[in-house]
């Protein structure tokens, strides 16, 4: 069992859990993920690692309430435990001195991108970060990302805070500004990553995305998370999760993410009704 040391509600449906997992903490690198399972009847789901503390032996994850598991997780707090916490899985982010790197975070992926931006900054890159959310009340860790970036641009879809619009707009402006951009890292909802890749493609700037297909074991055993990159089938769990966004077959990813929509809905409704939660 893995004990929850700390829970924070970051925004209404996005939460942070710090979990005691010394072995995972010891090895965690930016860009990697864990597989968690709440209990005997739970499913295994991947969540990216937001932070770790090797001395304390803890790993921090940030998640949004989407399916049954994340809804159930949101009801756990400090002192509770989960059955399984496996990792760190996947390949770490490729970190080196590229020059100027633009880090783009959509929604709760800001939590994933902070350790990546930090590592890039430590390596001597100029880090320009863009973070976007639907509205002001869904934004978090602005200061956190700001502290590891040379420049931070914030957008909200509805204009309730900072710049109105979506993240691809400032991204495009940066590319057009004439400043030499050596690499873009875009992490967030798949559709946002697709459009970031589409935005950078005409400029020929290498764009790394972190894919989030459905997984089961997370160790290369089942092939559920297969994606097509440059026409070659890859397993996201062991070959990724980061890939060249210009090579990803996005439509295939979207289609495979929808395989269990009906079952996911049924499962969540069943749990909510059992729990007396009426969304």
């Amino acid at each position: 069992m893995y004990e929850i040391l700390l829970k924070q509600d970051l925004v209404p449906n996005i939460h942070l859990l710090k979990i005691a997992a010394p072995n995972v903490a010891k090895k965690a690198q930016p860009g990697q993920f864990v597989i968690i399972r709440i209990d005997e009847r739970g499913e295994r789901i991947p969540l990216t690692i937001a932070d770790w503390d090797r001395e304390e032996g803890s790993v921090t994850i940030v998640f949004m309430e989407v399916g049954t598991t994340t809804h159930r997780l949101a009801w756990l707090g400090a002192g509770d435990s989960i059955a399984d916490f496996i990792g760190p899985l996947g390949l770490p982010s490729h970190i080196e001195k590229f020059g100027t790197v633009v880090c783009v975070a959509g929604g709760f992926a800001v939590a994933t991108i902070v350790p990546i931006a930090r590592a890039l900054k430590v390596k001597g890159n100029k880090v320009i970060s863009i973070m976007g959310a639907r509205s002001r009340d869904l934004l978090f860790w602005e200061d956190g990302l700001g502290s590891v970036s040379d420049q931070l641009i914030v957008t909200t879809d509805d204009g309730s805070y900072a710049r109105k619009g979506v993240v691809t707009e400032p991204l495009k402006e940066l590319l057009e500004s004439g400043e030499k951009i050596d690499r873009v890292i875009a992490i967030g909802p798949s559709i946002m990553m697709k459009f970031c890749a589409k935005t950078t493609e005409p400029f020929g700037v290498k764009t790394i995305v972190s894919l989030n297909p459905i997984m089961v074991d997370g160790t290369g055993m089942c092939g559920c998370c297969r994606v097509s990159v440059g026409g070659v089938t890859k397993f996201t769990c062991v070959d990724g999760p980061e890939f060249d966004g210009h090579q990803v077959d996005w439509d295939l990813l979207f289609a495979r993410q929808r395989i269990y929509l009906d079952e996911e809905k049924l499962s969540l409704e069943r749990w909510q009704s059992q729990s007396g939660i009426h969304p």
């Binding site: 499913e43 089961v216 055993m221 092939g223 079952e263 996911e264 049924l266 499962s267």
Partner: peptide, 24 residues
């Protein structure tokens, strides 16, 4: 499916008891 995925869902994750078990 790969056989590994199908059998893992069914045997290990007990998908044959979905939705009592979470894995479909």
């Amino acid at each position: 499916y790969s056989a590994n995925e199908f059998l893992t869902r069914v045997n290990l994750m007990k998908a044959y008891r979905f939705p009592e078990y979470d894995t479909p």
